[in-house]
Design a protein around this nucleic acid. Structure first.
Length: 284
DNA sequence: CACCATGTTCCTTG
DNA sequence: CCAAGGAACATGGT
């Protein structure tokens, strides 16, 4: 999925495009994506409403809409899962193959497409309730993080994926942040020293901020007409500039030399997810 | 054919 | 009861 940075870049892109746009038609092609909630209620609530803005919470997009008749504001919450995409395109453009929901906005439309259909769109903002602090604000602090890690014997890499601990860190940036902080991914979370937790907090912030900065400067296929990826994840995009693949220090680089010490990057599996790290730079 | 994939949730096991 | 591990979800890429 898009982790926090990808969602942030998407939200910045969408906000000015959607402000003031009125939903003239709603089509749900994959009912399971509207979750929790019923398709009928979803459709009825959105039809005729007007977007007033979009923001981000963790990996969630939070759209705000208003019904012109009653002036009531209500949220529409989205999550992209692993493969979700949101495009604003001309209403007559061909629909992406795995379009889950389509909101017509007059002559334009907002498309939620999702190959694997793990994503969701819901009017129930309750899903945001369990999220931990936003890592890029000062509500995310070493002291509170350390208190929350106390007593945990789970590996720190696995703990970082818990959205209740800190919102928005996913599998890619968990590995990246631990590399940056020089912490071994298997370290029991409760055994990190105060200094390590402080370094980890800073590393998470830096890694996320850099990814946002990167995503804000590369040209992306927002309308989804390229058939491929409108976001920026990892790996190599066709025709991408050289620095594209230099973004990530360890993720998906097993066997390649560590950029600090040259030791081959290792891959290990924790909680059924891949972790990448440098055994020399990350000892702790 | 086998294995892997940016996430979350549910079920089982200990 | 809780923590931890694994599978499921659905599709595509290598």
């Amino acid at each position: 999925m898009p982790e926090l940075p990808e969602v942030e870049v998407l939200v910045r892109h969408l906000d000015p495009l959607l402000r003031g746009a009125r939903v003239t038609q709603v089509e749900v092609r994959r009912a399971k994506v509207v979750r929790p909630g019923s398709v009928t209620a979803f459709t009825a609530a959105l039809r005729g409403a007007r977007f007033t803005g979009v923001r981000r919470r963790g990996k969630y997009l939070v759209f705000t809409l208003r019904r012109p008749s009653t002036r009531d504001a209500f949220p529409l919450v989205g999550h992209l899962g692993m493969t979700g995409r949101i495009h604003v395109q001309v209403a007559r453009a061909p629909l992406p193959k795995h379009t889950a929901v389509q909101l017509t906005l007059g002559s334009r439309r907002l498309v939620f497409e999702d190959t694997r259909y793990f994503g969701r769109l819901t009017l129930d903002a309750g899903v945001l309730a369990g999220l931990g602090p936003e890592p890029l604000t000062d509500e995310f602090r070493a002291a509170t993080l350390r208190a929350r890690l106390r007593g945990s014997r789970q590996p720190i890499k696995v703990r970082l994926l818990d959205q209740a601990l800190v919102a928005g860190v996913g599998n890619i940036y968990a590995s990246e942040a631990l590399f940056r902080a020089g912490i071994a991914p298997r370290t029991a979370a409760g055994r990190l020293t105060g200094a390590q937790v402080a370094r980890l907090v800073e590393a998470i912030r830096q890694v996320l901020r850099e990814a946002i900065r990167f995503g804000s400067t590369v040209p992306l296929d927002w309308a989804g007409h390229g058939g491929r990826d409108g976001l920026f994840y990892y790996g190599r995009a066709p025709g991408a500039p050289d620095y594209y693949e230099e973004r990530l220090a360890v993720y998906d680089r097993a066997g390649e030399p560590c950029r600090h010490c040259g030791t081959p990057i290792r891959r290990l599996v924790q909680a059924a997810r891949s972790t990448f790290y440098c055994a020399r730079c990350q000892r702790s």
